[in-house]
Design a protein around this nucleic acid. Structure first.
Lengths: 199, 199
DNA sequence: CGATTAACCGAACAGTGTTAGGTTAACCCA
DNA sequence: TGGGTTAACCTAACACTGTTCGGTTAATCG
């Protein structure tokens, strides 16, 4: 195929299809060739619009992080922490498959740094020391990423036989997959509430 | 090379060299060919001792998890939570490169389930409902995995120019890499203390 | 109208996990 | 002691992966 009259590719389209593949097939399910095929194109053509696969993943990640809301700090710092953590988790759990990639280096992305800057500033304004503010921000990220990552959704078996006998207190663990979404959310809320209350 | 007089390979030796490579070169730095080369062998020979690479990683992970200590619940549940979380984090942070793999499905490993069983039983004995016990265990794992994974060690730049101007409250972020280890530990302790206190 | 640039393709490179089939040494039993 | 079986390793290959190089054609601009 020569140069088409109207371009088939654009960074936006590439990002959106890439995210759709990740959501559907997982992080390992995304390959440049599969992505190209779904865009009606050969793999090499992608490199005219995207520098590397890693950069593409970073761009996808940034677009997800841009929905994190840090406006709650205008009320007070506790409310700010709660709202920030909730919207952060909501952003991650709507695209759970990309979380392992995101968890590698969240500090390097501009979207993360902007929000961290606001969060840090609000905590210092509220009277916490700079060091304390940093640690509180870190602790909040622990809960957000921990809940998005090591979620109970995946991991437990639905077969009672996998638990009875060997694990006396886990005799109902086989029911977890059915209530995983709800339980994950409630566990997150519990951890978040306990953390903010304990500060 | 024919069959050697004394075997070159054993599951133990394979696991330990694999872990050494992961510690040195990262999770992506481990390939079956490199692993084989360091064992003085060809890649195909590994498959006589190991089913798949994924299974090998699972075995390595299990050996790390076996050092997690849940004996503190004999004192009381708060002390149990604290000790368990600390030894869990210590186990993970001594091999940080394998944590991303571990975070995928911690519930499936026997070592995890055994410890989760004890933890869950102790919380129920202390008066928490089964559901609360599950959520508390989940919250503890959030903090442990979050702190081991999205650590501040990696992620921040040492160049002040990356922060001044754009992020007014992060003007000292370039100092973070130098104190990352200490700050990560303190942030973990803060989050853990706040969580357990807030319960 | 001519030159340049942008968009895509085909083929290739080095690397990945994994398997099939072959070779030889060690071991067990008659 | 000899013969058969098994265990441990090998070579070669398969189907992938991300990425690059050079080529071809259409759109665009002076």
């Amino acid at each position: 195929m020569p140069r088409p009259s109207t371009p088939l590719l654009s960074p936006d389209r590439i990002r959106s299809v890439a995210l759709a593949i990740i959501d559907r097939d997982g992080l390992d399910g995304l390959s440049m060739r599969k992505l190209a095929a779904e865009l009606g194109v050969q793999a090499a053509s992608l490199y005219g619009h995207v520098r590397t696969k890693d950069q593409l993943l970073n761009d996808v990640a940034s677009s997800i992080l841009s929905s994190v809301d840090v406006s709650g700090f205008s009320v007070d710092w506790r409310e700010g922490l709660l709202r920030c953590a909730r919207s952060y988790r909501a952003a991650l759990s709507s695209h759970p498959n990309i979380v392992p990639f995101l968890a590698y280096g969240p500090a390097g992305r501009d979207e993360s740094l902007q929000r961290l800057d606001i969060l840090h500033g609000a905590l210092v304004d509220a009277g916490w020391s700079r060091r304390e503010a940093t640690m509180i921000a870190a602790g909040l990220m622990y809960i957000v990423f921990g809940s998005a990552l090591s979620s109970f959704s995946s991991g437990f078996s639905s077969d009672p036989a996998d638990y009875t006998g060997r694990y006396p207190h886990l005799d109902r663990a086989h029911l977890l997959p059915g209530v995983a979404r709800e339980l994950d959310r409630d566990s997150f809320e519990l951890a978040l509430a306990a953390f903010v209350r304990g500060l």
